[in-house]
Amino acid sequence: MSKAVVVKDLTKKFGNFTAVNKLNFEVDKGEVFGFLGANGAGKTTAIKILCGLSKPSSGQVTVAGFDAYKQSELIKKNIGYMSQRFSLYDDLTIAENIRFYGGIYGLKRVEIQSKTKEYVKKLDLEEFEGRAVIDLPLGIKQKLAFSVANVHNPAIIFLDEPTSGVDPITRRQFWDMIYSEAAKGKTIFVTTHYMDEAEYCDRITIMVDGKIEALDSPSRLKKDFNAHNISDIFLKLSRKQNSTQN
């Protein structure tokens, strides 16, 4: 099976501070990969490197077959990204947002037009079509943002807390969209603070203090840690960390 992401001994230092400390993992094509960890554990630093926005201090990183040191521009072209904090331009309409992102990724005018039609139909957006994105309910906005992150048909989509603050029904609809893209062979790299969502991933990693402390399928991790749910594993890892510090 071909690998979407290969990370070997990835380390990132800021001065004396080691934000990311010798990460090792591989993500398969078509896998839903959960990237979890406490605030400040180093997730954002690692994601920035995987997205080609920051260079590693040492180690090897290949994303969609491209090298993070020498080919970061090619990485950017071959990934999609959406986050809870920033995804679409609030003061542009749905069509304008799609045109903007489609244009950035070099799509032809006819392709942008057909994508616009496709998304409006698929997400049932007819009533919102001429309105600014700010008027969309959050759940619909996040579903649209996911589609727009996919507009240039990238190999990998990075989702940074995509469902934060979204209602429980729409959250599940969002995961249906994730699954249907993964089934088409797209790789999904996702972060979340909802522990039930961690269970929806094929495999998860849990980062603590710049290191990966757990990496496996949710069911195997629960067995290994003798835990009822992912929340328990989190608590166990953080207690372990505290006891080694004190």
Partner: peptide
């Protein structure tokens, strides 16, 4: 108002 939004499970507890 939403003091725990975007905060990890351990810090939330």
């Amino acid at each position: 108002d939403e003091p725990t939004t975007g905060v990890d499970v351990v810090s939330r507890a």
